[in-house]
Structures are given as structure tokens and as C-alpha cells.
Design a protein around this nucleic acid. Sequence first.
DNA 1: GTCTATAATGGGATAGAC
DNA 2: GTCTATCCCATTATAGAC
Lengths: 213, 213
Amino acid sequence: MSEEKRAKDQLKAHIRAQNEKLILEAAERVFARQGLTKTTTQMIADEAGLPKANIHYYFRSKKDLLEAVLGRILALWLNSVSQFKYEDGPKACLTRYISEKIEQSQNHVNASKVFAMALIGEEPYVLEYLREYFVGELKKESETIERWVEDGLMKPVPVEHLFISLWAMTQTYADFDAQVKILLRTPELDDEMYDDAKSFIKRMVFAVCGIDD
Amino acid sequence: MSEEKRAKDQLKAHIRAQNEKLILEAAERVFARQGLTKTTTQMIADEAGLPKANIHYYFRSKKDLLEAVLGRILALWLNSVSQFKYEDGPKACLTRYISEKIEQSQNHVNASKVFAMALIGEEPYVLEYLREYFVGELKKESETIERWVEDGLMKPVPVEHLFISLWAMTQTYADFDAQVKILLRTPELDDEMYDDAKSFIKRMVFAVCGIDD
DNA sequence: GTCTATAATGGGATAGAC
DNA sequence: GTCTATCCCATTATAGAC
């Protein structure tokens, strides 16, 4: 009997995990397309191919669902960008960082937009995360950069403003892709355009840091 | 009689102009704080100190009101940034451009946020404007830069990406000020911080363009 | 031109049958 | 765990008195 129960529980857990994933992915797409408030649970249900009541079965409220979506994005953000390693030196680390950030914009447009919307709307959930994790990350990176500066591997730069600029320049290709497409006169951004963005941003950053290109 | 009528009309026009301005300014603030969709006409009415029906008297629909707000912002955007002049040279023009863009972020935080929200939400009204005016502006600036490059006053740069980066770096201080404040560990952005941003962005741009600082 | 009261709609959430 | 039907509330918009 207890074995039968365990099997049932496993099945239930599996169904739950599968449906939650389905809903979260559908929600991310709809939130990105429609904006956080304009999005209705009905739209998410339609996108997921489920009746609306099921959305509320898996996520108590729309707010809970949004926070779950944001949670996935924030975890992704934290894991998809490498930390600086002193031994690798500024050129390799900055190259990798810029490449990864642009690739993030390229491969996770929806996630980036939802994050941007939440940030511009000052969602407490996102601000809390920034305070908790991002400030700490930045501090580590700053210390590495300062050692590079001391050791004459690069010129001194205001580290906070450098990172603010790096995020702005890389994420703008996802968040404001509509504007970018208009300016580049293209219906879609292709690999070459992202590569051009990467190269240009690297050139700027290397130039200001006094790193030979 | 016709004179009396004219006087009345003038008064009416004055009242209309005054109230429209009051509503537009209130709406910009609320749209920036709450987001475009979360904002209700009731909130705008409260912010303006008027009953809700008056909002609809002056602006048929919420959509009309949003477009009127965006219209003011777009006009401001177009007028508050100087065009490049060949004779002034790259250093003076880029300096002025960056300063003006940062000052725009500093002095019109709400306008910048509403614009960003409309852009991320791909409001047709804003996209149309970008296609109509911005692409043309950019083309003029590109031509000037290309002449500077030909005449050896600066190194060649991919002009579209340069402008995308310039807008991203300068507007991020308004649009994502919540993030900037967290990273700079400050409750409010002060003049000194905006000056630091200006200096750093100028350094980056001069460096990549090969202009002596 | 101003304002109260209300119509009309749409959306979040849930009860309860299956 | 799924889904239909429904409740309830917030919101846009307007009618109509002043």
C-alpha cells in the first residue's frame, strides 16, 4: 500500500513539475510581449494550452506567478555570467563578460525584457534580489579590477559606472530591440549584428581601460 | 455681441490649455510611477486634483491621454539635444551631446521612464516616431561623423552601434535609476554622480574615437 | 465647464462537479 | 488533477444634473 502511494506521489510530483514549467515558460513569453500588467491569466492559459483555473491551481495568484517567473530569470542571470579571475587578466575577463552578456541578450530576449519591466516598475522582488546578490557580486569584481590596476594591467576606471554602462549597452539589444531594429533597418537581429555589437563594446571598454586590442 | 463671444472663447481656450497641461503633467508622473497599464484614470485625476470625469472630458480615452503624454516627451527629446556641426569638431560635439543626454536623464526622469516603457511595450505611436524622425536624425549625424573620420579628426566607428550605446548608457541613469541607486549605495542620485557618469562616458567615447582627452 | 452617479466590461479568483 | 460556471471587484467611459 505504501509503495502504491509512493508511486502515486511521484506521478503527481512529475505532473506538477511539468505543468509548472509549461506555465512558467508561457508566462514569460506573454509577460514579455504584453507587459506585466496588461498580461491576463487568460492569455497565459491560452499560451500554455490550459484552462485558466489551472493557472490558479499551480500559482495561487498572478503576483505569485510573476515572482516565480522572475525567480527563474534571476537565477539564470546569476549563473550565465562568469566571474572575473585575477589570473586570467583584464582582457580575457572583459572579453568573456561582454560576450556572455550579449549572448544573454541574444538568447533570452524575453527574460531580459521581463527583468527590465520589473526593474523599471521597481518590483520589490527584483530590488531585493539586486540588494542581496548583485551588490556583493559587484564588490568582488571591483576588487579584482583594483588589483589589475595596481599591477599596471589596466588604467583606473570608476568601476560602478563601468558596470552600469556594460549592463546598459548589452541589455539594450534585448530590452529595446524594437528601437535597435529600426535604427539598423532590419526586421530581425542576426548573428552578425550581435557580433558587431560585441566588437564595438569591447573596443570601447578596452580603449577606456588602456588595454591593447 | 461678437466681441463678447470672442472674449468667452478666449477664456474657454485658456481654461482648456491650463487644465490639459495640469492633466498631462499629472499623467506623466503617474505613468512613470505605476507603469502604463497599472495607471488608472482615477489615479491621474487624484494626482491632478480633479474628478475623474474631467479627465475624460479633456481626453476622450486613456489611450488618447497616453499618446498626448508621449507626444510631449517626443517633442522634448527632439529639441533638447543639439545636432552635430562639422565646424565644431568631434570633441566639442560629442561632449555636448553626452552632457545634454545625461542632463535629460537627470531633469526628466519621468519622461524618460514613460518613453522607455512605451518603447519596451512597442507602442506603435513611439515606433512610428522613431521611424519618422530618429532614423533621419541619425543619418545626418552619421554623415558628419564620416566627414570627421575622412579628415582624420577621429577614428572610424560603427555609427549605429555608437548611438545605440550612447542612448543606452545615458538613459539607464533615468530608466533604471532604482538599480543605479542600489549599486551606488545612495538613496538619491546627486549632481556629483551625474557628473561622474558624464565624465566616464566621455572618456569611453573619446578613447574609442581616438580623441585626446 | 464641472461633477455625481451609473452603465458596461473585463479580469482575478474560486466553488464544486468530474 | 482538471475544468466549467460564476462571483466579485476594479476600471473605463458616459449620461445627465448643475
